[in-house]
Design a protein around this nucleic acid. Structure first.
Length: 611
RNA sequence: GCGGGUGUAGCUCAGUUGGUUAGAGCGCUGGCCUGUCACGCCAGAGGCCGCGGGUUCGAGUCCCGUCACUCGCGCCA
C-alpha cells in the first residue's frame, strides 16, 4: 500500500465498504464520546469520518491529537447505519475504522481556526496565510482562479492567439503610475523598472509581425491599495492584435469574456451582446466611466431648473449654476416612504466626510392637495409649475426622494455617481438577479484639462489613435485642433470594459504612425525629444513598417473577484500584501545587508522627519 | 499626503450617566457521556481594555497625542 494514502479524503463511497483504506490529511474536527472518537479528516479533496474505538492502543494519542495536525490512518471501510449517514458529505455513507494511527506532524495551538466560516482580522489571516488558505472559501477561490486562467488561455489559443513572455526587468516608463525600481549591479547608478504593463513590448510584437499576442501578464505599479486594487502587483489578460479596428477587438474579446463568465457563472446571468456606451453618455447618466448597470435609475442634469432664484427661492444652487456649475439629481426611488430623515442626513454626512464634498442636498417628495411637493429647503419654495416640470423630467413621484449634487461640472458628476451607487446599495436597489452586466465604454476623449498645470494633457493612453471622421485622417484632426476647446473635443479609439461597476480593463487602437505620434505629443506640450527619449524602442520601430494594431488588457484578479462573489481582491490572491504594501508572512519589504547595498552602489538615508 | 471607522481573553464581540472582583460565545485544558457530524453536559485556565500622557478620590469608559488595521479621497497612461 502507498506510504500515505490509498484514497483521498473525498473519495470513499458505499462501494468501498469492506475494503481496507489508508488516508492522510488534517484533523478538521474531533468529537469524543464514551464509546468512540470521531475525527473529520480533511484534505484538498474532501472530508472523511474516521472512527477510533477506546480499545485501540493509540486511542489516547488520537484523543490528544490537536486540530490541524497531519495524520495517516489505515483501517476498514464500514457502512454507516441508515440514521448515521451524513447527507452533507460526499463520503457520508461510510467511515474508516482506524486500525493504525500515525501523527505525521503535530500542530501547535492555532492563531486562526480553520474550521468554520467566521470572519477573522486581515492581519492574522495574512500573517498565517497557509492556514487561511486551508479554509474552504479561500481554498475554493484559489482553485477557481486557476480554472479561470486555464479557460482564458484555451479560449485565446482557440482564437489563434499565441502566448508570449515579455521581460520583467525593463525600462522605466514616464507616463502613468509610479514604477518599482530595481538597481543594476553591473551598471552603477542605473535602475531597471518592473513593467506597469507590457504595453510597449506587445506593440513591438505586432511590429515584429506576430499578429495575435496574449499573455497572462504580471504588472507592477507602486500605488496605494483599494479594496479592489492590490498594492504592487496584479495580473491582466494582455492582448494585442494587428490589422484590426476597434470593432474587431470587441468581436475577439467579447466572446472570451462572456464565455468565461458563463462557464463559471453557476446560474448567474451573463447578458450579451455587451452594450456600448459613449464616455460622455456614461458620465452624464451614471456619473462614472464604470457604470453599474444593475442599478435601475440614472442621473439627471437639473441645472436649468435652478438658475432663477426668484422662481426657486434657493440661492445656493442659483449661484452655482449661474457661475457655470451644475446641479445633478440622483433619484432615490421610494426613499421618502421607506426611509426616515436620518437616512437623508446620513447621505449628506457621507458626502462631506468620505467624499470631502461641500454637501449633498436632498428633498423628500410627498403628495399634498393632488400635487407632489417637498418641504425640504432645495424644493420648498419652488414655483409649482417649475417643480412639476422638474419632477416630470426626472420621472419622480410622491414617496420618492431625490439628492442634489452641486458644484463644478466634474466634481458634481463625481459625487452624483458615487451617491447613485450608495443610494442603490443602501436601499437594496441593486438588481442582484441581473447577474453580470457588462458594457463597453467607448469614445474616450484624447485629451483632458490638467487643472494643476493649466494645460491640455493626455487623458488616458498617449499611444491611442485619435478618431477621425470619414474622409479625414488622424493627422488632419490633430492639425485642425488649434484651440484648447478643439483639442479637448478630439476623441480617441480608447475603450474600457466594465462589469457591475468594476473596471476590468482599458484598451485602445494604437497610434502606429510616427508623425501622428509626434503631433499628438506636441498638442499635449511635449516636444519630439520627449517621444524619442522616453519611447525610443517603440517610436524607432514604427519607422520601419508598423501594422495598424490595437488591444486590451482585462484584469484577471478582478474577473475572479466577480466570479467568486467577493468585493475584496485579497480574497482571490494567494499571498497578498496588506494596505501598506507589506507581506506580513514573508516579512517584506525588509532591510538588507550593507554588503548587498555596497555592491549595488546604494546608500540609504533616514526618512525625513514629519512636520 | 488627507479624511472616516475600528482597537477589550487565542478568535468573534458585549461592557450603562466615570464607581467594588471586566463578561458571553467559539477555541484551549481536565472530567463525564452508547454513534456524533457546529455532538451534549460539568469544571478550569486564560486580560498592560493598542501604546503614552492628562483630568479625577476613582478611567475600558472623558480629553490630548501616538501606533496598528481597515474603508474611502488623492493617486492608479
Amino acid at each position: 500500500m502507498h506510504a500515505f494514502r490509498s484514497h483521498t479524503c473525498g473519495e470513499l463511497r458505499a462501494s468501498d465498504v469492506g475494503s481496507t483504506a489508508k488516508l492522510s490529511g488534517w484533523v478538521h474536527r474531533k468529537r469524543e464520546h464514551a464509546n468512540a472518537l470521531f475525527i473529520d479528516l480533511r484534505d484538498h479533496y474532501g472530508i472523511s469520518q474516521v472512527v477510533v474505538y477506546p480499545n485501540e492502543d493509540f486511542y489516547e494519542t488520537a484523543k490528544r491529537c490537536p486540530s490541524e495536525s497531519v495524520i495517516t490512518v489505515t483501517g476498514e471501510i464500514l457502512a454507516r447505519d441508515a440514521e448515521a449517514v451524513n447527507a452533507e458529505l460526499a463520503t457520508g455513507e461510510v467511515e474508516l475504522r482506524a486500525q493504525t494511527f500515525l501523527i505525521e506532524s503535530q500542530a501547535d495551538p492555532l492563531p486562526l481556526p480553520v474550521f468554520g466560516e467566521q470572519d477573522y482580522p486581515e492581519e492574522i489571516r495574512l500573517k498565517h496565510r497557509y492556514l487561511d488558505l486551508r479554509r474552504e472559501t479561500l481554498h475554493n477561490n484559489i482553485i477557481l482562479r486557476g480554472r479561470v486562467i486555464n479557460s482564458l488561455r484555451s479560449r485565446m489559443i482557440a482564437q489563434g492567439f499565441t502566448e508570449f513572455q515579455t521581460p520583467i526587468l525593463t525600462a522605466s516608463s514616464p507616463e502613468g503610475a509610479r514604477d518599482f525600481l530595481v538597481p543594476s549591479r553591473l551598471n552603477p547608478g542605473k535602475f531597471y523598472a518592473l513593467p506597469q504593463a507590457p504595453q510597449q513590448f506587445k506593440q513591438l510584437l505586432m511590429v515584429a509581425g506576430f499578429d495575435r499576442y496574449f499573455q497572462i501578464a504580471p504588472c507592477f505599479r507602486d500605488e496605494d491599495a483599494r479594496a479592489d486594487r492590490s498594492p504592487g502587483e496584479f495580473y491582466q489578460l494582455d492582448v494585442e492584435m494587428s490589422f484590426v479596428t476597434q470593432e474587431d477587438v470587441f468581436q475577439a474579446i467579447e466572446p472570451v469574456m462572456a464565455g468565461v463568465f458563463e462557464e463559471f457563472a453557476e446560474g448567474r446571468k451573463v447578458q450579451t451582446p455587451f452594450p456600448r456606451i459613449p464616455y460622455k453618455e456614461s458620465m452624464e447618466k451614471y456619473g462614472s466611466d464604470k457604470p453599474d448597470l444593475r442599478i435601475p435609475f440614472e442621473l439627471t442634469d437639473v441645472s436649468e431648473f435652478f438658475t432663477d432664484e426668484s422662481k426657486t427661492g434657493f440661492g445656493i444652487f442659483a449661484k452655482i449654476t449661474n457661475g457655470g456649475g451644475k446641479v445633478i439629481a440622483v433619484p432615490a426611488p421610494g426613499a421618502t416612504d421607506s426611509q426616515s430623515r436620518k437616512f437623508f442626513d446620513s447621505m449628506d454626512k457621507w458626502a462631506k466626510k468620505e467624499m470631502q464634498a461641500p454637501g449633498l442636498g436632498y428633498a423628500r417628495l410627498r403628495e399634498e392637495d393632488g400635487a407632489v411637493v417637498s418641504q425640504d429647503p432645495a424644493l420648498k419654495n419652488f414655483e409649482p409649475k417649475l417643480l412639476a416640470a422638474l419632477l416630470d423630467k426626472m420621472g419622480l413621484k410622491a414617496g420618492d426622494g431625490v439628492f442634489f449634487s452641486a458644484g463644478k461640472k466634474s466634481a458634481a458628476y463625481k459625487l452624483a455617481g458615487a451617491a447613485r451607487n450608495k443610494v442603490a446599495a443602501d436601499l437594496g436597489l441593486i438588481d442582484e438577479d441581473a447577474g453580470f452586466k457588462f458594457c463597453w465604454v467607448v469614445d474616450y476623449p484624447m485629451y483632458e484639462w490638467d487643472e494643476d498645470n493649466k494645460k491640455v494633457d493626455f487623458s488616458h493612453n498617449p499611444f491611442s489613435m485619435p478618431q477621425a471622421p470619414e474622409g479625414k485622417t488622424a493627422m488632419d484632426v490633430l492639425l485642425e485642433a488649434d484651440t484648447d476647446e478643439k483639442k479637448l473635443d478630439i476623441l480617441a479609439y480608447q475603450y474600457d470594459i466594465v462589469c457591475n461597476g468594476i473596471e476590468l480593463s482599458s484598451g485602445a487602437i494604437r497610434n502606429h504612425k510616427a508623425d501622428v505620434m509626434y503631433k499628438a505629443f506636441e498638442i499635449a506640450g511635449y516636444g519630439p525629444e520627449v517621444v524619442d527619449d522616453k519611447f525610443a524602442g517603440m517610436i524607432n520601430a514604427f519607422k520601419f513598417g508598423a501594422p495598424p494594431h490595437g488591444g486590451i488588457a482585462p484584469g484577471v484578479d478582478r474577473m475572479v473577484m466577480l466570479l467568486a462573489g467577493t468585493d475584496t481582491i485579497r480574497d482571490v490572491i494567494l499571498f497578498p500584501m496588506n494596505g501598506n504594501a507589506q507581506d506580513l508572512m514573508m516579512n517584506a519589504p525588509a532591510e538588507v545587508d550593507q554588503s548587498a547595498l555596497k555592491e549595488l552602489n546604494i546608500k540609504t538615508v533616514a526618512p525625513a522627519p514629519k512636520d
